[in-house]
Design a protein around this nucleic acid. Sequence first.
DNA 1: TAGTGGTCTAGACCACGAA
DNA 2: TCGTGGTCTAGACCACTAT
Lengths: 249, 249
Amino acid sequence: MAVRAGAQADGAGAVDFRPLYRQVQERLVRRIAEGQWTPGALIPSEFQIARDLGVSQGTVRKALDAMTADHLLVRRQGVGTFVAAHDEDRVLFQFFKLRRDDGRRAFPDSDVVSVSERAPSAEARERLGLVRGEQVVAIRRLRSLGGMPAVTETVTVPAARFPGLLVADPVPNNLYGLYAERYGVTIAGATEHLKAIACPDEDAALLGIAAGSPVLLVDRLAADLDGRKVEWRLSICRTDAFFYLADLK
Amino acid sequence: MAVRAGAQADGAGAVDFRPLYRQVQERLVRRIAEGQWTPGALIPSEFQIARDLGVSQGTVRKALDAMTADHLLVRRQGVGTFVAAHDEDRVLFQFFKLRRDDGRRAFPDSDVVSVSERAPSAEARERLGLVRGEQVVAIRRLRSLGGMPAVTETVTVPAARFPGLLVADPVPNNLYGLYAERYGVTIAGATEHLKAIACPDEDAALLGIAAGSPVLLVDRLAADLDGRKVEWRLSICRTDAFFYLADLK
DNA sequence: TAGTGGTCTAGACCACGAA
DNA sequence: TCGTGGTCTAGACCACTAT
């Protein structure tokens, strides 16, 4: 089945002038979004996809390259192309920016403080774009780096999207992996807003620092492959022994 | 003059197996670094470069695409390819991450507090990799967003690299533009370390906030096209009306 | 109208990894 | 040995911009 449209059609009612490789890209993203291709899976070769969609291998390659740049795929020379999984490496490089002052990178441990299903706060409703009456699941946990308490995290997700999350036996350290494996929800990207604030009493107690100490507030909104807001996460980070790393390239 | 080496040579003493387009890329970056191509200038067409270097147009395109992704070049369809300049747009999108709470983006104004040439602190010497005896120029200024004091900035650069910077008549708002135009130094990227701290007295006075208030400390080290450390910049940011934006993609 | 970058195709050879 | 992605080339047509 051919994908082509627009430029190379005969010009009758052609409306869609997006480049062919973009159309291919959207089709392939959809295959991941719909669970046809699951994280970690090997996808067909460039030639097979090209034959399947009726385009050239070069066009498929351009689509795959774009998806690789978006961290949706991982290519392995001589082996094939795989759907990216939220493994520790990816979490560490793409989604966890806190580093020890000595610069070393470490995967954070997690201790769950509480898990509950409830009506969202007005702020949560606004950030996640919820309709009236929608419930949320809230997870609060303390994360440590190298044995030292570093971050208090409050994760808020729409309950409807994650049925049974409340009773997830042990809440796993790597939540994005759980979203993907158990609910078919792929976190594709996030936006973070950072502020310095005085540490609230409750967080200070968990972190083992004085209440009112300056701490870094990280307000993250994460979206799935379709751009839908999936998770709102507030993190309060100690920066007396850690720093948040940002690369401007 | 042909660039090719390695794979397609006859295999005598071939040692350099970097892809051809990478070698082309390095040559073109060098043209910018050496001032042969200056910011804002139109570079030759893909076909001209290809003829010049003895490679195909497709290989040149791949090199140019990579440089465009690095923000070194800007392509304009139907017109040509230009060396990226540090204009306001680029500064705003790539190098200035502070936003007003309402989300609006604004170019910061600057009021210079002091400019001096002196011996570097031990920390400055370490961050910039200076040898003993090297002097630095330090610029301190107050930056405002929408008329409100927002950031105190302390910029430290090696004096040898920027002769006469001390007496630059008015220090321009856009320093990276000055580095490029007057000294041929292109800032290609930077790394930022963020911490929350209690605001020092002096900065608090400039910002018009209470000393000890939580503020965001941004420690930036910027490098040129050759990866040499060019500028160390400490910024203390109010985040009671602003936030630092980070996109995780 | 001429020249540029943007897209698409096609085919060749290579390096790599697995069987 | 085989199939994969990585690189390189070549040529065609398109959309955009300036003149």
